[in-house]
């Protein structure tokens, strides 16, 4: 393959790389992790060719080491994503995202009369099943038919 046809994205010196995000879902991940307001450099590659997934998205966040807890939220939109924590251009730690047992403060309950829409409290959902994903609101106990991000 000619050099000009290859994907050229600089390695980052320090930061976090989220790889194997389902194709096109990278925009949701940016929003989910609140990266829209991050003052450093964020690179989003969308619909990149992937041997295993067909298409995938990649996000590179410079000079920010995301914690496992933060990055595990990504599993809500792309359960097969993997994370590389980079230091001095080398992979310091690598792990796959894992959905926590409880989702706090990220989603809105789809029940319009749930108390979480009216009171100063964080939304909370218990993860009842992972594949397919089944979430139940901790307050009104309604099963969520779709995911609505805050």
């Amino acid at each position: 393959m000619a050099a000009e046809q290859t994907l050229k994205v600089q390695k980052i010196e320090n930061g976090t790389v989220i790889d194997h995000i389902a194709g096109g879902k990278g925009w949701e991940v940016v929003k989910l992790l609140g990266l829209e307001d991050y003052p450093g450099t964020v690179t989003l590659l969308s619909n990149v060719h992937s041997k295993s997934l067909g298409k995938k998205d990649i996000i590179k966040i410079e000079n920010k080491q995301l914690s496992k807890k933060e990055v595990n939220k990504v599993a809500l939109v792309s359960s097969q994503a993997s994370v590389n924590l980079i230091k001095d251009f080398s992979v310091k730690e690598k792990f796959n995202v894992e959905l926590p047992g409880e989702i706090v403060g990220i989603l809105k309950c789809t029940n319009p009369v749930c108390v979480t829409h009216f009171e100063p409290c964080e939304s909370r959902f218990a993860v009842e099943a992972r594949n397919p994903l089944v979430l139940r609101c901790t307050y009104c106990e309604r099963i969520q038919t779709k995911l609505e991000f805050k």
Binding site: C109, V113, C114, V115, T116, C121, T138, Y139, R142
Partner: peptide, 9 residues
């Protein structure tokens, strides 16, 4: 209370 989940809160 009319709001669902209010007792839990």
């Amino acid at each position: 209370h009319p709001q669902e989940g209010s007792a839990k809160l």
